[in-house]
Amino acid sequence: MHVLPALITVLLLVAAGYAAGRIEALRFFFGAVVPLAAVAVFLGGIAWRVLRWAASPVPFRIPTTCGQQRSLPWLKHARLDNPATGWGVLGRMALEVLLFRSLFRNTKAELHAGPKLVYSEEKWLWLAALAFHWSFLIVFLRHLRFFMEPVPAFVLALQNLDGFFQIGAPVLYWSGVIILVALLYLLARRLWDPQIRYVSLFTDYFALMLLLGLVSSGLLMRYFTKVDIVAVKQLAVGLITLSPVVPAAVSPLVFVHLFLLSVLLAYFPFSKLVHMPGVFLSPTRNLANNNRARRHVNPWNYPVKVHTYEEWEEEFRDKIVAAGLPLDKE
């Protein structure tokens, strides 16, 4: 079981954040130095990963083909599942990045009495993943109200849409509810199914629990304990203008939220979470399948010394003639 170590690690991080918020001497370090360092590690780490991927040679086209490749005119070409052009790839990538098309194909295998192996569709993972990622994006964009002054119109518009039903005050944001439910499902899924539990590692649980801690501390502050939001924005604006201040009114819960975020940011480029930029650089998705239509020469092929038949014939011409054998070139 990897779940307990992950839970304990996240609980320790929560405790560290809370303690830092209560101890006067640590407030500046955890409120300003740690978050800024985490952002630097995040940006530098992402750039480093992407540049390394960019430097990796991709000599051949290795797309996974999920449909009929372009062939004879009377064979229907699967343009998105087996794209032959850059535009097709663009469509395929858009579906992959925005709608998680690969995950939509998820199946599950069950052994029934007989014994009979039965495959069936399994869309819940796709649905929960989609719900989580989209709400996370909306939550992220909504948080720009803390970092940008004046608050830009698109953030206000997004808030209006998210809190459309005007439930309570502060207004309930649906993205906050959906992200929590989706994360809880994704965690429960790993614990529930013995097969998935078997393949789940520490990093799987850790990422989920870290996000759960981040989301729940945020929801707790917004809907239950309440915090001095102006002080929080001063802190956030201070961070982003690189002139950090940590007002005394910032509650320890904010430190928990901020510390979990810092850990997430610093952990991001070096873990499986780096699939965020990684999905764009998946050679099995982002290459057009034109292997047969076009010749792809390995650009760093070693210059092979060849001796063609013409050269060979030239070299032994007199001997071939003497033996009375036919020549290609008389």
Binding site: F147, E149, Q234, L235, V237, T241, P244
Partner: peptide, 18 residues
């Protein structure tokens, strides 16, 4: 991702409270 930094720079935002 660094857009808020340039935005605040352009708006001359400081961490002063209203």
């Amino acid at each position: 991702i660094t857009f808020p930094i340039w935005y605040n720079q352009a708006a001359g935002t400081t961490s002063a409270a209203p």
